[in-house]
Write a protein that binds this DNA or RNA. Structure first.
Length: 959
RNA sequence: GCGCAUGUGGCGUAAUUGGUAGCCGCGCUAGACUUAGGAUCUAGUGGAGUGAUCCGUGGGGGUUCGAGUCCCUCCAAGCGCACCA
C-alpha cells in the first residue's frame, strides 16, 4: 500500500463534510464543560482573481492552532466568512453590467472551492456574508445605536442621547461641552425655546455617528469619498486615482471622542510593538498649549496658536498661519494685499497631490505683527501652506532654532533667527532637544527646557492668555460613500432632520438598480431611484469597513434573527483569543472594529471592550519573478528579426557588462540558431528583460517546452542556451498576475496534496515574516509524509506496524517531540515544529520503530498540520475518530536525563584540582571532583542546563 | 526626514533567549538498487588546510570568563508614517 494522497484527502474531506465534523456549538445554559477558545482570521474580500499561495498562509496557521487547541480540550470557535461589500465589485458592475451580488456570489463560490481543497476546519454553518440582508440588518442596527448615542465625557463612555436631552432640559449644555464646537453654550431655557430643527442640529453635533459638512477626500474617478486610511500619497488606495479635498455632506463616526480609550486599550491587548506603534501614531496624541498673541494695533484681537513647546516662547521669530485661516483678511495689511491674494491663489491651484509630491518652501508676509505676551516684542505674521488648517488652531509660533521646517522657512525668507539654545544650536541645523539650557529667554535663562515647559504653562494660565491643550492627529472617520454596493443608511430626511428608522423597519434593503452611475450633485446611484428618494431615504451607503467592524460578534450567534448576537453567546465566547491577519489593516479595520466594540460595551450589549486579545500578523508572501532576455536588433529603426530570440542570463549579463562583444554575441546566437539573418555591424542591439511565468521555471532554469505553452509569442521563439541550459533572471516583487509570478495553491495541492501544501507553507519560515514564495523545497516535505507512511506500511511487505511495547529509547524520542511540538504550537513557531516532526520520523526510521503505541501519539501531534494522512493512518491502526483524540501528555522522565554521571572538561580541556561553585540556578546538579576529572551528577526528574560555573570559569559538560 | 523590524552556508532557515553556531529542508558530491529514473536508500556537504588546527553569524568598536544574541556606531535592503507645530 502506498501513500495515495489524492484518494485519502478526497475521502476524508467528503466524510468530514457529511458528518458535519467541524460543527461548533454554543453550550447549553449552565453547561460549560469545556473552556472556550476563539481563533479568528481576517475574512477575505472575495475578489475575482482567486487565491494565490500568499492568502492561505494565515488560514493554515490559524487552522493548525485551532486543531491543536481542540486536542488540548478546548471548545474552539474557528469561523470564516466574506467581507462582500465594496468598490471592486461595483467597478466590475459598471464595466461589465453584472450585478455586484452576482459577481460576488461567483467569487465566493471560487474562494470556497479553493479553501475546501486545503482542508480547513472552519465551521461553515457559521459563515457570514456582510452583503446579505440577515447580516446587514444588524450593521444598520448598530449604526443606529451609534446615532442614538453620545460620548459623555463626564463618565467617559457612550450613553443614550436621551440622557443628553434630559440634561439639556434641566441645565442646558453647561456640563456637556459640544465636541463639534467648544464655543456653543446654551441654557435650559434657551434649549426649550428652540425649534425642533435647531435642537436636532445641536444633537447632531453630539451623536457618535453624525451627518455634517466637511472637507472630505473626494475621488472623482471612483465617484466617492474615501476615508483617510484609504488615501495613499494623495491618490486612492484602490486604483491609484487622484483625490482632492471637497466640501460635502457626509456621515462620520465620532472616533475622536474615543481617542484616549483607543490608546489606553492598547495596553490591555497583545499586539506587536510595531502594530501598537502604528495605531499610536495614527491617533497622534500630543500634549501642548494654546497661546493667544495680541495683534499689534488691534487691541483685544488676538491670534491663537497651538504649540507643544511653550518653553521656546522667547525663540519665536515669526508666526505662520494656514492659507485657509479665518484671520487672513484681518491680518493682511493694505500694502501686502496683492501679494497675499496672489499667494492664496497659488495655494488653491495646487492639488493635494502636488503638495505631497513636492514640498516647496512658499509663503507670504501679511504685514501684521503680534506681540509676544512676555516681552511685548513684535513678531511678524506670515502665511504658508506648510501650516495645516485642520490641525491645532491652524496657526503656529515658529521657533527656527528648534524646528527644522521653521528654520528652512526663516532661511528662505531671510528672517533673523534668535538662538535660545546657546551652544546646542550650531546655526546650520535646528535642534529639537528638550535637554538644552535656555539662553536669551529672560526669566527662563539657565533653566533646562524640559522643566521650563511647566513654568511657562503655569504663567500662561495664571495670566489667562492660554491653556494646556491635548490634540490628536486622528480625525473623525468619514462614514459615507456615494456608491451603490454597500449598506443603506437606515435614515429618513424630513425637512432637513435625520430620523432613524424603527428597528421593525430593518433591514432597509438595498434596492435593485438599472444603472450604477452616480446620481446628481455628487450623490450615489440610489439618488436615481424614484421609489427611494420619494421616501426621503438617505442616498449614501456605508463604507467597506462597516460590515467588518463587528463580524467577529456575528460568528458567535450567526443565525439569531432577534439580536445581532445574544448576550449569552458573546459572554461565552468573549474576546477573540487569537486574531490572525496582515498588517495592512493596522489603522483601518483594526481601529474601527475596536471603536464599535467599545461603543457596544458602553451601551451594555457586550461584556468586553477590546475585541481582540491577541493579534498575530502574518507576513506577506512575495512573488519571486523570473525574467527572460529578449534580443532586439534594429536597423534604421526597424526590427531585423522575424523570430523572437531570447538569450540566457549569463550572455545578457556579459554583453551588458561589455565582457562580450557584439560580434561574439552574434556568433554565439548563430552557433545555436543557424537561420539567423545577416547582422550588420551598424545594427543596434538591446537586451530587454521580460517577465516569464514562474511556473515554467525550475529554480532559475527555464523549462523551454513548458515556457512555449505559457504565451503565444513563445511558440516559435528561439532560446539561446549557455552550457546547455537557459538561465532566467530573478527578482523579488509583489505577487501579481501581471508579473507572471503568482503560484496557484490548487496546482500544488493536485501535485503534492493538501497535507504537503499545508506543512510546506509553515515550513517556509516564521508566520510573521515576509518572504518570497519558492516552490523548490516542497518535495522535502512531501518526502517526509511518505517516510511517515512507511513507518506504517511498506510497499512490498504491506503492514509493518506492530503492537509491541516500546523501548526507552523510542519513548524518549516520542516524549521529547510531544514537548517540543507543544512549546512550538504555543508560541506559533510552526516552522520549527515541522522540523521537529522530521527529526522524530528520521529517528524512528533509524531505529526501525514501527510500534503502535509510539506511532499513535505521533499522529495526534501531527494531525493539526496534516489532518488527512493522520486520519487515514489513525483509522488503519484501528482507532476511532482522530478529531476527538486528546493531545498526549509527555513524561518528564523521558524528556530529561535521569541520574547519570558525566565526565567534565573545562573549556574543552580536562582540569584537575577544581573547586566547584554552583550557582543557585544550577542547584539540580551535583558535582564531584575525582582526581583528574569532575563528575557531574544530575538529580532525577528536572530539566537541566549543561553548563555550570567553577570559580567564575565556565565548564562545558561533555555528554 | 522620522519610526519600526531585519541582516547567519549556494538557498529557505535553526540555535532551549548570554553558554560547543549552522537543527530541519532544498541544492550539490559520491555510491547502492535498477532497463531507466525526476522513485528509494547510504555517506558527505560553512571556509582554508594532507593534518593537528585555524577562520567564520553585514563592517568597526565595547561590555562579559563567554556575544549570532546585550550596548555604541556605520553600511545594506525592507515595512510603516510623512509638513501634525
Amino acid at each position: 500500500m502506498e501513500y495515495n494522497f489524492r484518494e485519502i484527502e478526497q475521502k476524508w474531506q467528503d466524510q468530514w463534510k457529511q458528518q458535519g465534523a467541524y460543527k461548533v456549538s454554543n453550550p447549553e445554559p449552565g453547561k460549560t464543560a469545556k473552556p472556550k477558545y476563539y481563533v479568528l482570521d481576517m475574512f477575505p474580500y472575495p475578489s475575482g482573481a482567486g487565491l494565490h499561495v500568499g492568502h492561505p498562509l494565515g488560514y493554515i496557521a490559524s487552522d493548525i492552532f485551532s486543531r491543536y487547541k481542540r486536542t488540548k480540550g478546548f471548545n474552539v470557535l474557528h469561523p470564516m466568512g466574506y467581507d462582500a461589500f465594496g468598490l471592486p465589485a461595483e467597478q466590475y458592475a459598471l464595466e461589465h453590467g453584472v450585478h455586484p451580488a452576482v459577481s460576488t456570489a461567483n467569487n465566493i463560490g471560487n474562494f470556497r472551492k479553493q479553501l475546501d481543497k486545503i482542508g480547513f476546519c472552519f465551521d461553515w454553518d457559521r459563515q457570514v456574508n456582510t452583503s446579505e440582508e440577515g447580516y446587514y440588518k444588524w450593521t444598520q442596527w448598530i449604526f443606529l445605536q451609534l446615532f442614538k448615542s453620545f460620548y459623555n465625557r463626564k463618565t467617559a463612555k457612550a450613553e443614550s442621547i436621551d440622557v443628553l436631552v434630559a440634561a439639556f432640559e434641566k441645565e442646558g449644555n453647561m456640563n456637556h461641552i459640544c465636541p463639534a464646537d467648544n464655543a456653543l453654550k446654551f441654557t435650559a431655557d434657551q434649549w426649550r425655546g428652540m425649534s425642533e430643527q435647531d435642537q436636532q442640529d445641536i444633537l447632531m453635533n453630539y451623536r457618535l455617528s453624525f451627518c455634517g459638512y466637511g472637507e472630505v477626500n473626494w475621488c472623482e474617478a471612483l465617484g466617492t469619498v474615501l476615508a483617510n486610511d484609504e488615501v495613499v500619497n494623495g491618490v486612492s488606495e484602490r486604483g491609484g486615482f487622484p483625490v482632492v479635498k471637497k466640501k460635502l455632506r457626509q456621515w462620520y463616526l465620532r472616533i475622536t471622542e474615543y481617542a484616549d480609550r483607543l490608546l489606553s486599550g492598547l495596553e490591555t491587548v497583545e499586539f506587536s510593538d510595531a502594530m501598537k506603534e502604528m495605531q499610536t501614531n495614527w491617533i497622534g496624541k500630543s500634549y501642548g498649549a494654546e497661546i493667544d498673541f495680541e495683534i499689534q494695533g488691534l487691541a483685544g484681537q488676538s491670534l491663537r496658536v497651538y504649540t507643544t513647546r511653550p518653553d521656546t516662547i522667547f525663540g519665536v521669530d515669526f508666526m505662520v498661519i494656514a492659507p485657509e485661516h479665518e484671520l487672513v483678511d484681518v491680518l493682511t495689511m493694505p500694502e501686502q494685499l496683492s501679494a497675499v491674494q496672489e499667494y492664496i491663489t497659488y495655494v488653491k491651484s495646487r492639488s493635494e497631490r502636488e503638495r505631497m509630491a513636492e514640498k516647496r518652501i512658499s509663503g507670504c508676509f501679511t504685514g501684521a505683527y503680534v506681540l509676544n505676551p512676555f516681552n511685548n516684542q513684535p513678531i511678524p505674521v506670515w502665511i504658508s501652506e506648510y501650516v495645516l488648517a485642520g490641525y491645532g488652531t491652524g496657526a503656529i509660533m515658529a521657533v527656527p532654532c528648534g524646528d527644522e521646517r521653521d528654520l528652512r522657512f526663516a532661511k528662505h525668507f531671510d528672517i533673523p533667527v534668535t538662538n535660545i539654545l546657546g551652544e546646542a544650536y550650531n546655526g546650520v541645523e535646528a535642534n529639537a532637544t528638550k535637554d538644552a539650557v535656555l539662553h536669551n529667554s529672560y526669566f527662563l535663562d539657565g533653566i533646562v527646557m524640559r522643566d521650563a515647559i511647566n513654568i511657562v504653562l503655569e504663567k500662561i494660565e495664571e495670566r489667562g492668555i492660554g491653556q494646556r491643550k491635548v490634540n490628536y492627529r486622528m480625525r473623525d472617520a468619514a462614514f459615507s460613500r456615494q456608491r451603490y454596493w454597500g449598506e443603506p443608511f437606515p435614515i429618513k430626511w424630513i425637512n432637513g432632520i435625520a430620523y432613524p428608522l424603527e428597528e421593525s423597519e430593518l433591514p432597509l434593503i438595498l434596492p435593485k438598480v438599472d444603472s450604477y452611475s452616480a446620481g446628481p450633485e455628487g450623490e450615489g446611484p440610489l439618488a436615481n431611484i424614484e421609489s427611494w428618494t420619494s421616501q426621503h431615504l438617505e442616498t449614501n451607503t456605508m463604507p467597506g469597513y462597516a460590515g467588518s467592524s463587528w463580524y467577529f460578534l456575528r460568528y458567535m450567534d450567526p443565525h439569531n434573527a432577534a439580536e445581532f448576537c445574544s448576550k449569552a453567546a458573546s459572554d461565552y465566547w468573549g474576546q477573540v483569543d487569537l486574531y490572525i491577519g496582515g498588517t495592512e489593516h493596522a489603522v483601518g479595520h483594526l481601529l474601527y472594529s475596536r471603536l464599535w466594540t467599545k461603543v457596544l460595551f458602553d451601551l451594555g450589549y457586550i461584556s468586553h471592550e477590546e475585541p481582540y486579545k491577541r493579534l498575530l500578523n502574518q507576513g506577506m508572501i512575495q512573488g519571486s519573478s523570473r525574467f527572460v532576455y529578449r534580443l532586439n536588433i534594429t536597423r534604421d529603426g526597424a526590427a531585423v528579426l522575424n523570430n523572437e530570440i531570447y538569450v540566457s542570463k549569463g550572455l545578457a549579463d556579459r554583453y551588458n557588462a561589455e565582457e562580450l562583444s557584439f560580434s561574439e554575441l552574434i556568433a554565439e546566437v548563430k552557433s545555436q540558431f543557424a537561420a539567423l539573418p545577416a547582422i550588420d555591424a551598424g545594427d543596434t542591439i538591446a537586451i530587454n528583460p521580460i517577465h516569464i511565468d514562474v511556473n515554467a521555471v525550475d529554480g532559475v532554469e527555464l523549462d523551454v517546452e513548458a515556457a512555449r505553452k505559457t504565451r503565444h509569442n513563445y511558440v516559435n521563439a528561439v532560446f539561446i542556451l549557455e552550457n546547455g541550459k537557459y538561465i532566467c533572471g530573478a527578482e523579488v516583487e509583489k505577487m501579481s498576475k501581471s508579473k507572471f509570478n503568482t503560484v496557484n495553491p490548487d496546482d500544488l495541492v493536485v501535485k503534492f496534496g493538501a497535507d504537503t501544501f499545508r506543512m510546506y507553507e509553515m515550513f517556509l519560515g516564521p508566520v510573521e515574516m515576509s518572504k518570497p514564495w519558492d516552490t523548490k523545497g516542497i518535495e522535502g516535505v512531501h518526502r517526509f509524509l511518505k517516510k511517515l507512511w512507511r513507518l506504517f506500511f511498506d510497499e512490498l511487505k504491506g503492514k509493518v506496524w506492530v503492537e509491541e511495547a516500546p523501548t526507552a529509547a523510542e519513548l524518549k524520542i516520542l516524549h521529547r517531540t510531544i514537548r517540543k511540538i507543544e512549546d512550538d504550537n504555543e508560541r506559533f513557531s510552526f516552522n520549527t515544529a515541522v522540523s521537529a516532526f522530521m527529526v522524530c520520523v528520521n529517528e524512528l526510521t533509524d531505529l526501525k520503530c514501527h510500534k503502535k503505541a509510539i506511532l499513535a501519539d505521533l499522529l495526534v501531534l501531527l494531525t493539526p498540520y496534516a489532518p488527512h494522512i493522520t486520519a487515514e493512518l489513525w483509522a488503519l491502526l484501528g482507532n476511532e475518530n482522530i478529531l476527538e483524540a486528546a493531545y498526549p501528555v509527555f513524561d518528564v522522565k523521558y524528556v530529561t536525563e535521569s541520574a547519570k554521571e558525566y565526565p567534565v572538561s573545562i573549556n574543552g580541556k580536562v582540569r584537575t584540582n577544581i573547586n566547584i561553585a554552583l550557582d543557585a540556578a544550577q542547584a539540580d546538579v551535583e558535582a564531584i571532583v575525582l582526581g583528574n576529572e569532575v563528575v557531574i551528577k544530575w538529580l532525577e526528574g528536572k530539566p537541566h542546563k549543561k553548563i555550570i560555573y567553577v570559580k567564575g570559569k565556565m565548564i562545558n559538560v561533555v555528554v
